Amino acid sequence: GSSGLPPGWQSYLSPQGRRYYVNTTTNETTWERPSSS
């Protein structure tokens, strides 16, 4: 899909309704949208 996220990243919603991002390669999580640069 065209999520616009860098490879390996997925976006999720927290129980509070906030969006966060997870790097499935490194298990890093961040509130900031990852850049593909």
Rank of each mutant, 00 (worst) to 15 (best):
1 G>D: 14
1 G>T: 13
1 G>W: 07
1 G>K: 04
2 S>V: 14
2 S>G: 13
2 S>F: 10
2 S>Q: 12
2 S>I: 13
2 S>A: 14
2 S>N: 13
2 S>L: 12
2 S>K: 08
2 S>T: 12
3 S>Q: 12
3 S>T: 14
3 S>H: 14
3 S>V: 12
3 S>A: 14
3 S>F: 14
4 G>A: 13
4 G>S: 11
4 G>Y: 10
4 G>V: 10
4 G>M: 11
4 G>D: 14
4 G>I: 09
5 L>V: 05
5 L>R: 02
5 L>Q: 02
5 L>I: 06
6 P>T: 04
6 P>R: 04
6 P>G: 04
6 P>M: 05
6 P>Q: 04
6 P>L: 07
6 P>E: 04
7 P>W: 08
7 P>S: 08
7 P>R: 07
8 G>H: 07
8 G>D: 08
8 G>Y: 07
8 G>I: 03
8 G>Q: 06
8 G>E: 07
9 W>N: 01
9 W>H: 01
9 W>R: 00
9 W>S: 00
9 W>K: 00
9 W>D: 00
9 W>F: 03
9 W>P: 01
10 Q>D: 09
10 Q>H: 11
10 Q>I: 15
10 Q>G: 05
10 Q>L: 15
10 Q>E: 14
11 S>T: 13
11 S>A: 11
11 S>I: 09
12 Y>I: 06
12 Y>P: 01
12 Y>V: 08
12 Y>T: 04
13 L>Y: 07
13 L>M: 10
13 L>R: 06
13 L>I: 12
13 L>P: 02
13 L>V: 11
13 L>G: 02
13 L>Q: 05
14 S>N: 13
14 S>L: 03
14 S>D: 15
14 S>Q: 01
14 S>A: 04
15 P>V: 07
15 P>A: 09
15 P>R: 06
15 P>F: 05
15 P>I: 06
15 P>W: 05
15 P>Q: 07
16 Q>K: 09
16 Q>F: 08
16 Q>T: 15
16 Q>M: 08
16 Q>N: 15
16 Q>L: 09
17 G>R: 02
17 G>P: 00
17 G>V: 00
17 G>Y: 02
17 G>D: 03
18 R>E: 15
18 R>I: 15
18 R>Q: 15
18 R>L: 14
18 R>D: 15
19 R>M: 12
19 R>I: 15
19 R>T: 12
19 R>P: 15
19 R>Q: 08
19 R>K: 09
19 R>V: 15
19 R>L: 15
20 Y>N: 00
20 Y>A: 03
20 Y>V: 06
20 Y>M: 05
20 Y>Q: 02
21 Y>L: 00
21 Y>F: 06
21 Y>V: 00
21 Y>Q: 00
21 Y>N: 00
21 Y>A: 00
22 V>I: 11
22 V>E: 02
23 N>R: 02
23 N>K: 03
23 N>M: 02
23 N>L: 03
23 N>A: 00
23 N>G: 00
24 T>Y: 08
24 T>M: 11
24 T>A: 10
24 T>Q: 09
24 T>K: 08
24 T>I: 13
24 T>E: 09
25 T>W: 14
25 T>N: 11
25 T>A: 14
25 T>R: 10
25 T>I: 15
25 T>Y: 15
25 T>P: 01
26 T>G: 02
26 T>Y: 02
26 T>N: 06
26 T>K: 03
26 T>M: 03
26 T>S: 05
26 T>R: 03
26 T>V: 02
26 T>F: 03
26 T>Q: 02
27 N>G: 15
27 N>R: 09
27 N>D: 07
28 E>G: 02
28 E>S: 04
28 E>F: 08
28 E>I: 07
28 E>P: 00
28 E>M: 06
28 E>H: 06
28 E>K: 06
28 E>D: 05
28 E>W: 05
29 T>Q: 10
29 T>W: 15
29 T>G: 05
29 T>P: 04
29 T>V: 15
29 T>F: 15
29 T>L: 15
29 T>D: 02
29 T>A: 10
30 T>D: 01
30 T>F: 08
30 T>K: 07
30 T>A: 06
30 T>R: 08
30 T>E: 03
30 T>V: 10
31 W>P: 04
31 W>F: 11
31 W>T: 07
31 W>V: 05
31 W>Q: 04
31 W>L: 06
32 E>S: 08
32 E>D: 11
32 E>H: 10
32 E>Q: 11
32 E>W: 09
33 R>K: 11
33 R>V: 09
33 R>A: 08
33 R>W: 10
34 P>F: 02
34 P>C: 00
34 P>M: 02
34 P>H: 01
34 P>Y: 01
34 P>E: 02
34 P>Q: 01
34 P>A: 01
34 P>N: 02
35 S>A: 11
35 S>M: 14
35 S>E: 11
35 S>I: 12
35 S>V: 14
35 S>H: 12
36 S>L: 14
36 S>G: 13
36 S>Q: 11
36 S>K: 09
36 S>D: 11
36 S>I: 14
37 S>P: 14
37 S>W: 11
37 S>V: 14
37 S>E: 13
